[in-house]
Design a binder for these strands. Structure first.
Length: 476
RNA sequence: UCCUCCUUAGCUCAGUCGGUUAGAGCACAUGACUGUUAAUCAUGGGGUCCUUGGUUCGAGCCCAAGAGGGGGAGCCA
């Protein structure tokens, strides 16, 4: 008896864990398997207990069957929703419907209990609002498991796409002294004593005493550094965290989000649009090819039009038109708008939605906006009134990409900076790109979470990032 | 920041005209059931009705302020 036990323990310890995803794809032939994961549900009767185990490798659970003539009820008492378990058993063809294989358990070891009275997640559905309050546990739900796996796949696909096209991944700084990008309010980075900071003679905070010897902030964009490196490596991209201290309370904004910013030398606006469209279609196609289980779940649970919409985007060309044409369409539209449509003013959300969702019924690339509503670095058209900007507008999301051909002329760029009050003195290094070997170039920014909103069909951007940061919220 | 709606059991929600002891489903506990599929059935426990103040004989319900959340807008990606 003693010898038998010893033998068994060695066998158990030597056994390697198999991920649920792999187990589910394995042909059953009574082979021994060891599975570890978290219990989703337990059900059954006096004679048989079914335990659904999930380890996050796939949205699907493995069904563990415990024969209650072998197991005692006491030994499975701690196997409750949320508990972590290690299951050793035989992989067999399922006797029941609903799954092809299941594990006939020999041992079920509880690694960590989860008191069912206090464990917040239940078998039944929870509201996304409630799950936001328990962001540390929501990855254990089907929905967030699916979203996080898709998020990973999209991040991977971004790198694969650019790598295959010969783009180089550039790490632009997170901390920046440049305050001139005009992309909104910034988070200050400082080591000065907030209670008693050093002061100048005029009574202002003396940032020359600060860590970097000047006032610094978290980046709102890697574009300017991206341009600098594109002026050497031709085609680069950045993919990193971005910080905006705007008091934005919407389902499309975060204070901390991830942005992808390609920057390409020798690209004009047309090339820029071609890249943006090809890139977005590649990403959506990648999701369809690699995340179908998760997308199918999201399609069934949240948005029955998700898969048709994703397929539509992959299969159809984006509508390209310039700002002036868009204004004409909106002016003659039968729909009444809350905000007036006028050449020279920026399009409101309702206008963008009309163009994308009602008029063209497909993604739209809008170009050549009036210069006064766009950034200083965008290339001025020959008409002197518009710039070579492009915004890619998606259904339900609005602006998913914002980009432009850049102004490569030193003189024109300086003029625009003066007109728009951008301090050229601080930007000497950026201007040097136009002084030494300037070339036509273009780029754009893609909000990673906005892409995920589209690909997953989620309605709120706070549900496509594991730990969202937004005004009054930095828990977890 | 603005507009608007919401806040009642662990979760999702109902609660009539301001009136006695605030309900349901799920979850949880106990029991039943020989293969379940968000298992089912029976029984049971479970409440700071967001907070503070006010009106009233009496407030979950009416009023005011505050807090938190949703949706929309602006800013943008």
């Amino acid at each position: 008896m003693h010898g038998l036990n010893t033998c068994y323990v060695i066998l158990y310890n030597d056994m390697k864990r198999t991920k649920v995803k792999e187990v589910l794809q394995t042909a059953p032939s009574d082979q021994e398997v060891l599975v570890k994961g978290w219990v989703r549900t337990k059900r059954g009767n006096k004679y048989v207990t079914f335990i659904a185990v999930n380890d996050g490798s796939t949205i699907h659970n493995i069904q563990v069957v415990a024969d209650m003539t072998v197991f005692s009820e006491e030994s499975l008492k701690e196997v409750t929703t949320g508990a972590s378990v290690s299951v050793l058993g035989t992989l067999v063809q399922s006797q029941g419907k609903g799954q092809t294989v299941e594990i006939q358990a020999r041992t079920v070891e509880v690694l960590g209990t989860a008191d069912p009275e206090t464990y917040p997640l239940q078998k039944k559905g929870h509201s996304l609002e409630f799950l936001r309050e328990i962001a540390h546990l929501r990855p254990r739900t089907n929905t967030f498991g699916a979203v996080l796996r898709v998020r990973h796949a999209m991040a991977f696909a971004v790198h694969q796409y650019f790598n295959s096209k010969g783009f180089f991944y550039i790490h632009t700084p997170i901390i920046t002294a440049s305050d001139a990008e005009g992309a909104g309010e910034m988070f200050r980075v400082t080591t000065l004593d907030p209670v008693n900071p050093p002061k100048t003679e005029t009574g202002e905070v003396d940032f020359s005493e600060d860590f970097f010897g000047k006032s610094t902030n978290l980046t709102v964009s890697g574009q300017l550094e991206g341009e600098v490196t594109a002026m050497a490596l031709s085609e680069i991209y950045t993919f990193g965290p971005t910080f905006r201290a705007e008091n934005s309370n919407t389902s499309r904004h975060l204070a901390e989000f991830w942005m992808i910013e390609p920057e390409m030398a020798f690209y004009e606006l047309e090339d820029n649009m071609d890249l943006a469209e090809d890139f977005l279609k590649y990403l959506v196609r990648y999701a369809l090819d690699n995340c179908m289980d998760d997308l199918q779940f999201l399609n069934d649970m949240y948005d029955k039009e998700l898969l048709p919409r994703l397929n539509f985007v992959v299969e159809n060309d984006f509508q390209r038109l310039n700002y002036t044409e868009a204004i004409e369409i909106l002016k003659t539209a039968k729909q009444k708008f809350e905000y007036k449509v006028d050449w020279g003013t920026d399009l409101q959300s309702e206008h963008e939605r009309y163009l994308v969702e009602k008029h063209f019924k497909k993604p739209v690339i809008l170009t050549n906006y009036p210069k006064d509503i766009k950034s200083f670095y965008m290339k001025l058209n020959d008409d002197g009134k518009t710039v070579r900007a492009m915004d890619v507008l998606f259904p339900g999301i609005g602006e998913i990409i914002g980009g432009s051909q850049r102004e490569e002329s030193y003189e024109k760029l300086v003029t625009r900076m003066q007109e728009m009050g951008v301090p050229e003195k601080e930007m000497w290094w950026f201007l040097d790109t136009r002084r030494f070997g300037t070339v036509p170039h273009s780029g754009f920014g893609l909000g990673f979470e906005r892409l995920l909103l589209f690909v997953t069909g989620m309605g709120n951007i706070r549900d496509v990032i594991p730990f969202p940061r937004f005004p009054k919220s930095a828990e977890f």
